[in-house]
Nucleic acid binder design. Structure first.
Length: 352
DNA sequence: CATTCGTGGCA
DNA sequence: TTGCCAAGAAT
């Protein structure tokens, strides 16, 4: 039986991971959110720091969102952290601080979709729901030779039913862990280890030379270009930051004052723009330096970034704005996108 | 249904 | 190098 083969493989090959040492639904929840679109190797350190700082739902519910985002800094997809925090507060107030123990209730929580609900329901409560993630799509598509697109509504529904059938009467907790781990270590995206695979004899893709063609994805990602001009306004060891509050990338993270264009603009033209004049008027200032083009690539965007370092009396800028003046020593209190964090690290390094 | 949301690793 | 992709979810 396929489920037994996968489970046997798992029992002999599984990794020791911090979230596998607990049955606490809170910790399992945190790990599953972190692991969304994120590699295990990256998530481990973030997980340990997170649990250390927020050991329980109550601790997380009492925290400030800014603290949570700071712990999340560098992980990406920051809505995960915002939803995590919001959900902790809801569990605290509406569920008496107790993590819900049914699939349907878990699925209602912010930031939890069908995969994560099934993962938590099975790992923490051993409920029979097949957790279908990218690994499972890959494993099932290859074994059964399924050519339905994994990013179509029809395909998702079909794979969900196949996964449930494959799980059968196996223990949900073990089976879900096993098939995910099998996909992560053995049936990997590129150059899967078919030569040492215990399932190759019954694998459709292997026996029909389709391993490299499965799974099928229908959509293609397209990226757009944005042009960021960040103004690093400093005075001795102080500088200006602002909070990003629009529905865009990096919501509720901090950055320097930003002038954005949809096409590149020469620095001398930038000095003539309305934004620039509104910001500086006739104030006394010195352009300390202008960086070269820094390319920051996101999944759907290329950010062509220029950092303009200006030295001036920044206290004179503060009126009528949401800008905040902070000292280098306060950097650990504010969550920054990696693009900004990297620049700050360079600045601090050059001034100490 | 298509798009958007980060960052890092790998060939 | 450049593109793909990783324990997906929300809109």
């Amino acid at each position: 039986m396929l489920s037994n083969q996968i489970i046997n493989w798992y029992l002999q090959n599984k990794r020791e991971l911090p979230w596998r040492e607990t049955k606490d639904p809170y910790q399992i929840w945190i790990s599953e959110i972190m692991l969304q679109q994120t590699r295990v190797a990256t998530a481990i350190d973030y997980f340990n720091r997170f649990i250390e700082q927020f050991p329980t739902i109550s601790d997380l519910a009492k925290a400030k969102e800014q603290e949570v985002l700071k712990l999340w800094q560098g992980l990406g997809y920051y809505s995960r952290a915002r939803n995590l925090h919001a959900t902790a507060k809801i569990i605290q107030s509406q569920y008496n601080g107790i993590f819900p123990d049914s699939y349907e209730e878990i699925l209602k929580l912010k930031g939890i979709g069908s995969y994560t609900a099934a993962a938590i329901a099975s790992f923490a409560f051993n409920l029979p729901h097949a957790a279908v993630d990218g690994n499972v799509y890959r494993v099932l598509s290859r074994i059964y030779g399924i050519d339905k697109a994994i990013d179509s509504t029809e395909g998702k529904k079909y794979f969900q039913s196949i996964a449930s059938e494959t799980m059968g009467n196996a223990r949900p907790e073990i089976f879900n862990q096993a098939i995910i781990e099998f996909g992560a270590l053995q049936c990997i995206p590129r150059n899967p280890k078919c030569d040492i695979c215990p399932l190759f004899a019954n694998c459709f893709a292997y026996n029909n030379a389709q391993v490299d063609q499965l799974p099928i994805k229908s959509k293609q990602i397209k990226t757009k270009n944005r042009y960021f001009y960040y103004l690093f306004l400093s005075c001795k060891s102080q500088f200006l930051i602002e909070k990003r509050e629009k529905k865009d990338i990096w919501e509720n993270l901090f950055q320097y004052p930003l002038i954005e264009y949809n096409k590149p603009i020469p620095t001398d033209e930038l000095l003539q723009t309305l934004e620039w004049k509104e910001l500086f008027g006739n104030k006394n200032m010195l352009i300390h330096s202008v960086s070269g083009n820094v390319l920051h690539k996101l999944s759907h965007q290329n950010l062509h970034t220029t950092f303009i370092h200006i030295e001036m009396d920044i206290k004179k800028l503060k009126k009528n704005t949401d800008y905040k003046i902070i000292n280098y020593s306060e950097i650990p209190n504010y969550p920054f996108p990696k693009l900004i964090e990297d620049h700050l690290n360079m600045i601090v390094k050059n001034n100490t």
